[in-house]
Write a protein that binds this DNA or RNA. Structure first.
Length: 319
DNA sequence: AATAACCTCAACCGCTATGAG
DNA sequence: ACTCATAGCGGTTGAGGTTAT
């Protein structure tokens, strides 16, 4: 005897659920409870397959579902559990009250993977990414310019350094700007706030101070940055940053007088890039800056992780 | 303003596990 | 021991929203 289909495929709706369908399903389950998904659609007066009803209830309509963004604690728990059990989303979901396996799976694929790449960790193995050669990083400075959108994929960033051009928009002025989306510019970074904030990258046009920002990823998980001179100006090379740029934190502190971090630059932040408490962070200057106060181009020597802070703090990027 | 490109996540599909008969 | 219905899981898709050009 041939097996009958799990549900009546004919005369069933597919796709997004309507408000009315949701209400019918909620009303039915509230009065009859969960279970027997096969017979539920007919009993509830829904033109849906039982499987679809179950999924809708479990992933969306259940009253005990937690809504809103994942917390930092949840992030870390998911990463730890994934390290232990792998893609067993239902097992992971059992440890996170109010979260569904589907939700965690989606969140993993869209956010946490990126976060782990940013830490220099392979999300599937939870081991450090294989380092690429220094030569690859060096070639970044001379490779052709690409658009910011080209760096959206962590894989792209690792395999192919991307250049983010600063396009002058104010002709005749010594200062030019370009708005960039944070995530487009720094796809490997995790942003705890201000995801939709625009960055204004400023080219002061004062002797090749800043022509483009080079973001490379050598996959070694280090914190070392370096500035280097190119024929077109100064570039900032960034090896994979284990840091998160925490806008919520970075915008909070009162900015102090410019602080000399080294002979190479100036920082307006009251705290250097690195750890704030136990959390890696980067201070981002919210002050406007005029061309006159822009620092001189740094020499082409290896600098510290604070360069990144200086890069922001020096006013290249303002909100 | 129009269009393309990109991102997110709800929903689907196909498979496996489980348990009743 | 076997068959079959059902529940549940994980991978994938695509609609709709957002951002970039």
């Amino acid at each position: 005897m041939a097996r009958s289909p799990c549900c009546e495929k004919q005369h069933t709706n597919k796709g997004a659920w309507s408000k009315e369908e949701d209400e019918r399903l909620i009303k039915y389950i509230k009065s009859h409870g969960e279970g027997c998904w096969r017979s539920l659609p007919k009993a509830a007066g829904l033109a849906r397959c039982g499987k679809s009803c179950r999924l809708r209830w479990i992933n969306y309509l259940r009253p005990d579902l937690k809504r809103g963004n994942f917390t930092r604690e949840e992030d870390e728990l998911i990463i730890r559990l994934h390290n232990e059990v792998g893609n067993k989303w239902s097992q992971i979901a059992q440890q996170l009250k109010g979260r569904t396996d589907n939700e965690i799976k989606n969140y993993w694929n869209t956010h946490i993977k990126r976060k782990l790449y940013g830490r220099g960790v392979d999300p599937s193995t939870h081991k450090p990414l294989k380092p690429t050669t220094a030569a690859a990083g060096a070639s970044a400075a001379t490779s052709s310019t690409t658009t910011a959108s080209a760096v959206a994929s962590p894989t792209n960033l690792i395999n192919k350094p991307a250049l983010i051009p600063v396009v002058p928009t104010s002709s005749g002025s010594s200062v030019s700007h370009k708005s960039l989306n944070m995530k487009s510019v720094f796809p490997l970074f995790s942003f705890n706030g201000g995801l939709n904030e625009k960055l204004v990258v400023t080219d002061f046009g004062c002797g090749g101070l800043e022509k483009k920002l080079v973001v490379t990823d050598s996959g070694c998980g280090g914190v070392e940055d370096s500035f280097s001179n190119t024929s077109s100006g100064v570039t900032l090379e960034e090896t994979p940053y284990p840091h998160q740029i925490n806008l919520e934190l970075s915008l909070a502190p009162p900015f102090q007088q410019p602080q000399l971090l080294s002979s190479q630059g100036v920082c307006f932040c009251n705290q250097a890039l690195g750890l704030r408490g136990n959390q890696p962070c980067c201070c981002i200057n919210t002050r406007a800056i005029d061309a006159a106060s822009a620092p001189a181009p740094p020499p082409a020597t290896t600098a510290t992780g604070n360069d990144f802070c200086r890069f922001f703090g020096a006013g290249f990027i303002n909100f």
